[in-house]
């Protein structure tokens, strides 16, 4: 009986049609295919990473160009500002407006009470102006420190 059972479990079932029931094949990925798949996935990952990095690099290059352009513009504006502040330019503009340079200087002593009257009449000076002790050179140094000098 046991044998019959065993036999029954070992031997394939036969039915009357003569067909044999074949055990279902377990689908298993063979190792080479798996390796190829891994390699392909890695390659795609590398490609996408590289593309992303290239995109970032493009952005950095654009930023660098913008920075260089901004610095060039800053230098041009500074040169222009220096020209507008120069005594030569101010003299030319003053002449164009019909002013003439003074030829004489006169020192006039102002009585103390008159000076006090004028000071009180002017009113309180804005503390930002009165307290501002930073010279243009200090401002320039601060700008250089914060902006850096490298492109």
């Amino acid at each position: 009986m046991a044998l019959a059972f065993r036999l029954a479990s070992v031997l394939p079932e036969r039915d009357s049609t003569g067909l044999t029931l074949v055990p279902r094949r377990v689908r298993r990925l063979p190792l080479p295919v798996a390796m190829v798949a891994v390699v392909v996935v890695c390659m795609f990952t590398v490609v996408s990473l590289t593309t992303h990095m290239a995109g970032q690099q493009l952005r950095i290059d654009r930023l660098n160009s913008d920075i260089i352009r901004a610095r060039n513009n800053f230098d041009k504006l500074r040169a222009e500002r220096a020209r507008f502040q120069s005594p030569q330019y101010l003299t030319e503009k003053a002449k164009a407006m019909g002013m003439v340079p003074g030829t004489q200087t006169k020192m006039v002593e102002v009585p103390v009470d008159v000076a006090v009257l004028v000071a009180s009449g002017v009113g309180k000076v804005d503390s930002d102006v009165a307290d501002s002790k930073e010279s243009p050179l200090d401002q320039f140094g601060r700008m250089k420190q914060s902006g850096g000098a490298t492109p």
């Binding site: 290239a54 995109g55 690099q57 290059d61 120069s86 005594p87 003299t91 320039f140 000098a149």
Partner: peptide, 26 residues
């Protein structure tokens, strides 16, 4: 595109402050 790389940053020169007064000079 995207392949540029700065290998060495330029170092700017130092600035000089003179004793000259621009207005008096002019």
């Amino acid at each position: 595109a995207g392949e540029g790389s700065v290998t060495k940053q330029p170092v700017p020169g130092d600035d000089l402050v003179l004793s000259i007064d621009k207005t008096i000079q002019y």
